[in-house]
C-alpha cells in the first residue's frame, strides 16, 4: 500500500498541492482524477520521485521515501513500473528491446531467460508478433501495451500510469483499462492511475481520489460516485450529457445492467 500524508507542493509562489492525504491500496486500481491543472500529475510525479514535495510523507508499505538515500531510492525504483502519457518508449530500439531494457539493466538473467520473460510480457499484453517492430511502426494503442509490458517486466510491486487512455479511441481505451485492471489483480500490484477519462473512472475505479484545485476533495469507489453529493465531483464526472443521463438511470434503477 502507498500512503500519502499532508503532501504540499509549490512552484515559486503557486501552491499546487494543498495538504493532500490519500491511501492507494494493494491489489486495487487506484485512480487519481481531476480536471486539467488540478495537480494530479504533480501528485503522481511526487509519488514516483520525479518531484520532491515541500512537506508531507510518502509511505511505500510504511517506508517514507522522502527520507530515502539515493541508493535506497534507486532500489525502490526497481519495484516501480510506470506507464507514461506518451508511452515514452525508446524510439531507437525495437519493441522487444524496449521490453527487455529493465531486464538487461537490472538483472543477471541470461539472454535466453530475458527473451523468454520479454516474450511472456508481450504475450500478456497480446502483442506477440510485434517484437521486431520499432515504436514508430506501431499504433498508439500498441505503444501503450508495449509500455505496459515494459512496466511489468521486472514484476513491479507498484504500477503508476499517467493518462493511459490519452489519445486512444474508446474501444482501445477500454482494452487498456481492462489490461491494467487484470494485471493489478493477477500480480497483486498497487496500481495508481492518473486519469480524467470517465470510462476509466466508472469502469475500473476501485479506489478513487478526486483532486480539485490542489485539494483532496473526495474519496470513494465507482459505485459511490453515482450517488455522491459532492458538487465539484458531480460537475466533473457528469459533465457530459451521456454520463449525466447514466447517473439519472442509476438513480432510478439502483444499478447498471452491464450487459
Amino acid at each position: 500500500m502507498i500512503e500519502v500524508k499532508n503532501l504540499v507542493k509549490s512552484f515559486d509562489d503557486k501552491t499546487v498541492l494543498h495538504d493532500v492525504s490519500a491511501k492507494f491500496e494493494t491489489g486495487k486500481t487506484n485512480l487519481i482524477i481531476g480536471q486539467s491543472g488540478s495537480g494530479k500529475t504533480v501528485m503522481l510525479k511526487c509519488l514516483v520521485g520525479l518531484l520532491r514535495p515541500d512537506s508531507g510523507e510518502i509511505l511505500f508499505d510504511g517506508r517514507n521515501t522522502l527520507d530515502f538515500s539515493h541508493e535506497q531510492m534507486k532500489e525502490l525504483r526497481k519495484e516501480i513500473g510506470m506507464l507514461f502519457q506518451g508511452s515514452a518508449l525508446f524510439d531507437s530500439e525495437t519493441v522487444l528491446d524496449n521490453v527487455m531494457f529493465p531486464l538487461v539493466m537490472f538483472t543477471d538473467m541470461s539472454r535466453s531467460e530475458m527473451l523468454d520473460r520479454a516474450m511472456f510480457c508481450l504475450e500478456r499484453v497480446n502483442l506477440r508478433g510485434a517484437e521486431k517492430k520499432y515504436p514508430s511502426e506501431i499504433s498508439g494503442g500498441m505503444q501503450k501495451r508495449v509500455a505496459i509490458a515494459r512496466a511489468i517486466a521486472l514484476n513491479p510491486k507498484y504500477l503508476f500510469c499517467d493518462e493511459p487512455n490519452s489519445g486512444l479511441d474508446p474501444k482501445t481505451s477500454i482494452l487498456i483499462d481492462e489490461l491494467l485492471s487484470d494485471i493489478t489483480h493477477e500480480y497483486n500490484i498497487t496500481t495508481v492511475i492518473n486519469t480524467h477519462d470517465m470510462n476509466s473512472v466508472l469502469g475500473i475505479g476501485e479506489n478513487i481520489i478526486f483532486i480539485n484545485k490542489g485539494y483532496r476533495e473526495w474519496v470513494g469507489d465507482m459505485s459511490q460516485i453515482y450517488t455522491t453529493g459532492n458538487e465539484a465531483l458531480n460537475d466533473f464526472v457528469f459533465a457530459t450529457r451521456l454520463f449525466s443521463e447514466l447517473r439519472e438511470y442509476v438513480a432510478s434503477h439502483g444499478h447498471i445492467d452491464k450487459k
Partner: peptide, 12 residues
C-alpha cells in the same frame, strides 16, 4: 517525450 523520465523512474 518523457524517455529520460522513464529511465530515471526505472532507476537508471
Amino acid at each position: 517525450t518523457e524517455q529520460i523520465d522513464a529511465l530515471e523512474i526505472m532507476g537508471v
